[in-house]
Nucleic acid binder design. Structure first.
Lengths: 103, 103
DNA sequence: GCTATTGGTTAGTGGCAACTTACGGTTCGT
DNA sequence: ACGAACCGTAAGTTGCCACTAACCAATAGC
């Protein structure tokens, strides 16, 4: 999932999709790469659960998948929480043993 | 910043640092790459504002930078909010013109 | 002062992934 | 039915980045 966000082009695609659902052809006007490249990136983003797509005739409409963003936020919150706890624990241990070192 | 999180090894380093501050040598026991590789990744993570370091004699103690995680969360929240708004707007427009298509 | 430990830097290489070109398939319009 | 539009996939190339090996600097300990 974070691998998908690691590529600047994919972030540009997501940024373009942030303004609302869009077809592949419409995305080419906002992202400076060829259409096949965009298709490949959309495939990666889809496998990562960050975008969803729906066929509308020959048009394929892509949109941001809110569940993907949600789980990304959960991951970040969990990481954030554990890091904070570990840091507090570290501070507590350091404070306890502070007297042993010379001030 | 998200480029820094795109690499699995860097995420492994962050995961190891999540348990508390650590020296470079200690990190090599949790991340299966050579020490120079870890140094390079730590440099990237530092430039991204995700880790902070402090020299303690010859030991260099690295830890997770909470400000970096904070700004990452802000970015995600902003993206999340705009995506939600755009989606709501899209739904509103679609609802308004729904009667034109055949049911 | 000498050696060992710790860690950052450089040079060089290999592999992967992002990109383009070319092609095939499906649907809309006439 | 035929051409056009829209899109995905396959094949091939190129550039970048993650990694290792070798080297250098700084501090701790004797």
């Amino acid at each position: 999932m974070l691998d998908a966000l690691g590529d600047p082009t994919r972030r540009a695609i997501l940024t373009a999709l942030r303004r609302g659902p869009s077809s592949v052809a419409a995305l080419t006007e906002h992202v400076p790469v060829s259409r096949p490249a965009i298709s490949q990136h959309l495939k990666v983003l889809g496998q990562a659960g960050l975008v969803d797509h729906e066929a509308r005739g020959t048009r394929h409409i892509y949109r941001v998948d809110r569940d993907g963003l949600s789980s990304l936020r959960e991951w970040l919150d969990q990481f954030w929480g554990e890091a904070l706890d570990a840091y507090a624990e570290h501070v507590r241990r350091t404070e306890t043993t502070r007297g042993r070192r010379q001030p």
